[in-house]
């Protein structure tokens, strides 16, 4: 799950970066996603944790860096969503939205971490070291801050929103952040049970096993949610629907209606795929096709192509208005 989350978030980051540089999209979530990618990378998805930690001294500092990355990423996501949903910038005056808040949070996490008795790189750092009070405090403070931030994102993402893509994106992010908050609380319960040794091994085992699907499921959903707006933007800019219809009509009707040679037909399909304005070419195609349909009988149109023609035709019909309502039309004779 962490691997899927990493690659999805990386793809979202690359697409968003492209949209920012190419089409001047908002940079609001770019830093959050970039830091999120870093956080997931530090989870050993591509390079083993031990190798990365060795470069950081080989004493589990990787764990701290990863958790700080996740905390900062969620804080930035929260900031972006507040910026989107707030009517003005007044929310920025609240303490938790000031940069000093995240700096203090980072210190609150890092200070207990630095007070531990450092040991060699551990694949299960928290379970192996949670008996140490500084590690218990470090992990509890981190999880608490993360839970609060995630809950804050969850709440604002559920506010009413007119725009459908934003609404869908927000709801998916809210679901993800809800899972992250739940995982954080559940992890605090696990660490507490381990630290003060209550609940017995079976309860502790269940609590331990629950964390990863909840947390990384939440990260996965958040990544998907943040990927929805750039996907919608790319869909619109590339006019995917019109392009697909144009390619399909050219492929199915090009040779029948225009008597194109095989090579010309292939070139025509390629041109349809790369058309700078598929909508304009689709209109041209519709007119040409209708010419043949209406005036030259005896040329069969495949059923599916006919349906695509009808759908596109209906869209163009809706754009101009009724002839009878706009023209001084005489009765037909």
């Amino acid at each position: 799950m962490i691997t899927a989350a990493f690659w999805i978030l990386t793809a979202v980051f690359v697409v968003r970066l492209y949209l920012v540089t190419r089409w001047g999209s908002s940079t609001a979530f770019l830093a959050a996603i970039g830091i999120g990618v870093l956080g997931l990378f530090l989870g050993g998805v591509v390079v083993p944790e031990a190798v990365i930690d060795a470069h950081l001294g080989g004493v589990n500092v990787l764990h701290l860096v990863r958790n700080l990355s996740v905390t900062i990423a969620v804080w930035l996501i929260r900031d972006g969503i507040f910026a989107a949903y707030s009517l003005d910038a007044s929310y920025q005056s609240r303490f938790t939205h000031r940069p000093i808040a995240i700096v203090l949070a980072a210190f609150a996490i890092a200070i207990p971490f630095s007070c531990q008795r450092f040991g060699p790189t551990a694949s299960n750092f928290v379970p192996e070291n949670v008996q140490q009070l500084p590690v218990f405090i470090y992990a509890t403070v981190y999880m608490s801050i993360l839970a609060l931030l995630a809950m804050s994102v969850f709440r604002i993402c559920l506010q009413p929103q007119m725009s459908l893509p934003v609404r869908v994106s927000s709801r998916v992010v809210a679901a993800g952040m809800g899972l992250v908050a739940l995982a954080s609380v559940e992890e605090i319960a696990y660490m507490t049970a381990m630290h003060i040794d209550v609940g017995g091994p079976s309860v502790q085992k269940v609590l331990y096993v629950l964390f990863s699907p909840l947390f990384y499921g939440g990260v996965l959903l958040t990544s998907l949610g943040l990927g929805i707006p750039p996907a919608v933007k790319a869909w619109r800019r590339l006019q995917v629907r019109d392009r697909a219809a144009l390619v399909f009509l050219t492929a199915t009707l090009g040779r029948t209606y225009w008597g194109l040679s095989y090579a010309a037909w292939l070139a025509s399909i390629l041109a349809s795929l790369c058309a700078s304005s598929p909508s304009a070419r689709l209109y041209e195609y519709i007119i040409r096709s209708s010419d043949h349909k209406v005036a030259l009988s005896g040329r069969a149109t495949p059923v599916l192509a006919g349906r695509v023609l009808d759908r596109v035709q209906a869209r163009f019909d809706g754009g101009v208005g009724s002839l009878e309502s706009v023209l001084p039309v005489r009765a037909a004779h």
Binding site: S25, S26, A28, Y85, P165, V166, P229, A280, I287
Partner: peptide, 25 residues
Amino acid sequence: AFGLARVLHAAPQKEATKAERVFGL
């Protein structure tokens, strides 16, 4: 005729809301 049709079928771009802009739409 195609040039006139292009003018007739042109639709005003819907202005993005603040939320849409921030979300990257």
